[in-house]
Simulated scan of single mutants.
Amino acid sequence: MKRVNILCIDTTSEFCSVSLFENQTLIENNNSKIERSHSKLLINLVDDILINNNLKINELAAFSISKGPGSYTGLRIGLSSIKGFCYALGKPLISINTLKVLAKYALEHINDKDSILCPMIDARRMEVYTKCYDYNLNEITSDKAIILEKDSFDKLKDKSVYFFGDGAQKFSGIINRQNFIFLDNINPDSKFMGELSYDKFVNNQFEDLSSFEPNYIKDFYLIKKKGKWERS
Rank of each mutant, 00 (worst) to 15 (best):
L26A: 00
G194I: 00
N203Y: 13
I82T: 05
K157S: 09
Y221L: 07
S37A: 09
I51G: 15
R76K: 00
A123I: 04
G227R: 02
I77G: 02
K144W: 13
I147K: 09
R231E: 12
N176P: 03
S210R: 12
T12I: 08
D48R: 15
G68T: 02
S17D: 03
N136F: 15
G167S: 07
G167Y: 04
D166W: 10
L26N: 00
L137H: 02
C8Y: 02
G227L: 01
H38K: 02
L41P: 05
S142N: 11
G84V: 00
I121S: 00
F63M: 07
K157G: 04
K33N: 13
K159I: 13
L50E: 02
S142L: 12
K144N: 10
D114A: 14
M120N: 10
E149G: 10
M1F: 10
F201Q: 09
A106M: 13
C132H: 06
G70D: 07
I140K: 12
I116H: 02
K40P: 09
E59L: 01
R124L: 04
N31V: 14
S152R: 09
T73K: 00
K157L: 02
L137S: 03
Y135I: 06
D143V: 14
N187D: 11
T130P: 05
N215L: 12
G165C: 01
F164C: 05
K218D: 01
Y135P: 13
S197W: 05
I174Q: 04
K2Y: 12
W229D: 09
S71P: 03
G167M: 04
C8V: 02
T73H: 01
K100E: 12
D208H: 05
Y135L: 13
